[in-house]
Structure formats: structure tokens, C-alpha cells
Write a protein that binds this DNA or RNA. Structure first.
Lengths: 303, 303
DNA sequence: TATTGCATTTTTATCGCTTAAAATGCATTC
DNA sequence: GAATGCATTTTAAGCGATAAAAATGCAATA
């Protein structure tokens, strides 16, 4: 695999082009980009060279790189054409196998490496992540045990009750502050959703957007315990929910509710926002039984 | 280091002797112990042999081991004489160094290994744990960044507000059930505390007990999201709080409040229990400013 | 017949070496 | 003179071999 920092940098540049922060003709400063990303100039330079080869940037020897004329169009293609993360794919595969009962409760690392064709490093990376998310743990002695708890549909409801406990509470934190630009960004996103993106986006992206909204709201509490807990819930929820996203009808209502919450926050009426947020989550939770059939018909989807 | 599972088994046996679950003259079944601990017979046998050498058990060749006559007395000594966990000590040392500002925000792994004399494995183990707890993260590129957030006294109050959000809520979960034996055990502990252990236990043990009480209460919700979140909060809280435990006066009131909460749960009045729990946490939180001076006078304590 | 104690097998951790990747310093160039 | 581009240095990951530890199987035995 090419250096991960390089591809990270490339992704960031592409993102800025797609979002319009960089326009055709703009010159790229390596140091500035590096500072933005918290890395050194070197991988930034490599990323720029890579993108120049693909025509997104123009190389101007001795003076660095500028954004090509048809970059915005190309950038989208290049972004889509980037290779998917193999390890992440296996992560979902494991979750899938667990949910469908293909993977036993107790496994050795060797059997996992064998089954999913992973190097030692990749496997420990994966298992550590899974352990951190709480759905597997090291046994004393050898091997790992998967917890059964999180594979049941009930866990999805539990995740919502947890969110109902923490999300409205986070709005009542002293020092709650949602920066105006983030508020605007959230609102723009919701409006774009209502404007048609609900129909054009794929399920993953819809989930991602919803998560980002809620994490932005909770993150503004300045209380990292709340945000951290929410992030963890969401990561697990993703495993449980992604089968059930086919039904888009509720997204219209959700976007409207999100906007109402933002309006209350903007008006400085945090108790009202908290109330609306609670009602919103309640509504979503109440709807779980409707999608439960999807959850239970566990079937492998990835090749 | 001797096999960790072996010492784990030895610890378990010692614990059972100290608590009186095993009495002098009792014969030890390897398989039974192994099953209890979720490990195989082998390390159990090794642990027994080890303890026999120390006189806690009697070896009866061909028929295994029995508990020695003066085992209860010896067991206490042996337990105290066991070597401390070096890696854990470094973990606290790192926390200490961070809180006192000795450790810079940004470090390389190499510099950490050098500073704390750790092997590669030990260091990654530590850093992964710290990262999971949220007070450091991998930088893209090389090195790690410590977050500043959690080193401020405000974080302690935040942790309590988080607990106020989740702990009472956990009592209102459908299916809440605190098994009678655990309830009894909790009550016994609190009564022993009031009976004098508040004075005789060291600070670590007092903290441990309090944590265990609250985790038992929340764990009975059967909702692993709540329990998981609480556990994470507590692990970080420990880093913030352990300087401030010298004042024991509040522990009497706390134990009394714990007992009141248990009484409400036993009576099946969960809303009342939730209310009392909230009041309890509120009270503890209100008291934080009184111990804050201790928190701010950051000084290294370990050699 | 259940249990022990040991030998064998399986699994995982550790160590050193090598390789890859990123950071840094510096001469060069516009 | 600021930024680039390359060479050098630093840092961390990967890999294989080896050692350690735990699980398992099995004969011996109470």
C-alpha cells in the first residue's frame, strides 16, 4: 500500500477541490497544506505529484503545482476511483459474519488470520478496534471471545435509549457553544438533503450525514465525555443498522426535525433544542420495529 | 515475566482463600478452577505448585493439592508480596507526567520508549490503551499527540455531569434487574465500610469500591452501552481524582446514600432509586470545588 | 471412573533485522 | 527571499525466526 499519509493528503486536496475551496488556477503551497493536515511537506509534495499525473493538478517545475482547469470534474472521478480500504472491508465482513452466525463465539488469532487472509499487524489492528468497540474481548489464555449482546436487534433500541440519555443532556451543559460556521454548515447540509440528496445519496452517505449532525450538536457541549460516548455508540450502531437503510421515507421528516433543532440552538433556546432533540430521537426509536424484519433476515451481502 | 495466566490463577486461588471460599483442608480441583477462570488446567496446576512452594497449599503427590492449615494468614502475606505490574505503574507515571506538564504535547514512540524504558510491545500496549481512553491520539505521520482537555480540573466536573446523565437513566431501562446476590453483596460492602473500613482501607481501595458500586447498579440495566460508557468515564476519572482522596469525611455520607439507593431498588421503586442516585451524584459533584486545590497542586508522587 | 501429571501440540509474544515511510535540513531556483 | 525539490536523517512498520506460554491429549493412578 502506498503511504497512508500520502493518500490522506491527496484525499484532502481532492476534497478541497470538490468543495470549491480550491479553484482552477490556484497555486498550492506545500507548507500551508502540510500545516493544515498536521504533517510534513514531503508527503504533501508526493500527493501533489500523484495528482498531477492524473491531470487534476498542473506541475510547474520550480514553482510547484496549480489546480488544473477541469480539476473539479476530474477530482470527482479520481475520488471515486481510489482503492477501497481492504482492512475496513474485512472489518465489515467480520461484523456480517457475526451477525449471521457464521463466526463462532470463540476464535484464535491464527484461525482469524487464516480465514480473512490478514497479516499479523492487520489482524491485531482489527481485533483491537473491535475490542475497543466492545464486541469482542481477549480471553485469558489464548484467543478471543465475541460478545453476543451486540448482535441482537434489541441492541439497536438500547443504543437509542443511550442516545436519549446523553444527547439532550449535552445541550444543557454549561458553556454549550455551537460555532456559527458549523451551525451554518449543518443547516446547509440538511437543506441540500431536502433539496434532493436524500434520493441521490447512497445509504452509507445518508448514515454518515446523520451521524455527523448529531456529533456536531453534542460536540458543541465542550464535554468530551458526551461526544466520546456518542461516537462509540454510533460506531456500533452502524454495524446494526446498515442493512435497514433502504427505506428513505423517514429521512424527509428527520431532516426537517434536524432543522428545527438547529433553529432552537441558533435562537439560544437550548432547553427547547434539547426537548426537540429528545422528541426526534424518540420518534426514530419508535420506528425501529418497522425495520426490524430487515435486521433479522441476516444475509451476507459482500462478496 | 512469568505467565500472566498463571499469576492470574494464583491470585484467584489466594482470593478465594482470603475470602473464606476455600478453607484449610479443602482439596483443589484443577478442572473446576480452570472452568471458573475460563482457562485450561495447565496454568492452574502451575499456580498450585507455586503456591505449594510458598506454603499456602500442601502438595499431595498423585492426588493434587489441599489448602494448608495456616493458609488464610499466609495468603494475605503472599498477596501483598506479589510483584506490582510494571506497565501499569508506567501508565500512571505517564498520566502524572502529563498532569504536571512534564510530558510535551507531542512525542515520538521512540522518545517514549527511551524515557520510560519500555519494549516495543509494552509501549504499543500502553499507547493503545491511552488512545482508547481518549487522552492521546496517533498523529498522521509519526508520533502521538496528547489531548489537553482531560488534564484540566474542569474535566472532573464534566465526568460527573456525564454520569448524572447516564446513571439515573440506566435505572429506568426496561428489563432492569439487579440480581439479589449482587444486591446483597453491594449492601454488605457498604455496611462494612460504615463499620470501619473507611478508616482502614487505602485510597485506591476506596475508589475501587465506589466504582464497583456504581458499575453494579448501571450494569443491572442490561444495556451495555450505559455500562460501557460508565466504565470509560471511571477509568479516566481515576487519573484525575486519585490525588484528592485524602479527605475521607464524605465517605460516610456516601455509603449511607448508597444504602438508600439499594433500598429503593430492592423495594422495586426504580424511579425513587434514580432520583436518589441523581441527588447522590449531584452532592458529590458539588463537593468537587473543595478538593480542587489538591487537583491543581500537581506534584509527582511516584519515584 | 474421575482426576492427576506429564508430554505433545498449538498458539501467541518477543527480538533483531530489514524495509518503507515521513520529517528535516539545505542547496537551488524562480 | 520565500518556496521548492532533493538528499539525509529519523521514525515506525513488516517479517521471519525463536522462545515462551497455554491448551490438549493420554497414560497412570487413586
Amino acid at each position: 500500500m502506498k503511504g497512508s499519509v500520502v493518500s490522506e493528503a491527496a484525499g484532502a486536496i481532492l476534497g478541497q477541490i470538490v468543495e470549491g475551496a480550491l479553484k482552477p488556477g490556484d497555486r498550492l503551497r506545500a507548507q500551508k497544506l502540510a500545516d493544515q493536515l498536521g504533517i510534513s511537506r514531503f508527503p504533501v509534495g508526493q500527493a501533489m505529484r500523484m495528482l498531477a499525473e492524473q491531470g487534476v493538478l498542473l506541475s510547474d517545475p520550480g514553482r510547484g503545482f496549480t489546480v488544473a482547469n477541469d480539476a473539479p470534474r476530474l477530482a470527482r472521478d479520481v475520488e471515486n476511483g481510489r482503492p477501497p480500504d481492504d482492512v475496513l472491508a474485512v472489518y465489515f465482513q467480520i461484523a456480517e459474519d457475526r451477525l449471521s452466525g457464521d463466526l463462532p463465539d470463540h476464535v484464535s488469532e491464527l484461525s482469524m488470520r487464516d480465514r480473512y487472509q490478514l497479516s499479523r499487524g492487520q489482524l491485531t489492528q482489527l481485533l483491537n478496534r473491535i475490542a475497543a468497540e466492545g464486541w469482542a474481548e481477549r480471553r485469558s489464555g489464548y484467543g478471543w471471545t465475541f460478545s453476543t449482546v451486540l448482535t441482537t436487534p434489541a441492541a439497536l433500541e438500547q443504543s437509542y435509549r443511550m442516545r436519549i440519555a446523553i444527547e439532550p443532556a449535552s445541550l444543557m451543559e454549561p458553556g454549550y457553544f455551537l460555532p456559527p460556521d458549523i451551525l451554518r454548515q449543518c443547516r446547509d447540509t440538511e437543506e441540500r438533503m431536502l433539496d434532493g440528496e436524500i434520493l441521490t445519496s447512497n445509504a452509507d452517505r445518508l448514515y454518515e450525514r446523520s451521524v455527523r449532525f448529531h456529533e456536531a450538536i453534542v460536540g458543541a457541549s465542550q464535554n468530551s465525555f458526551f461526544l466520546d460516548a456518542l461516537k462509540r455508540v454510533n460506531r456500533i450502531r452502524r454495524l446494526l443498522i446498515y442493512r435497514s437503510l433502504a427505506d428513505r421515507s423517514r429521512y424527509w421528516q428527520q431532516a426537517a426535525e434536524h432543522l428545527q433543532i438547529l433553529k432552537a440552538i441558533e435562537a439560544g433556546d437550548l432547553p427547547l433544542a434539547a426537548e426537540r432533540l429528545k422528541a426526534h430521537l424518540d420518534g426514530v426509536m419508535k420506528n425501529i420495529p418497522n425495520m426490524r424484519p430487515l435486521l433479522e433476515g441476516a444475509q451476507r451481502r459482500r462478496s
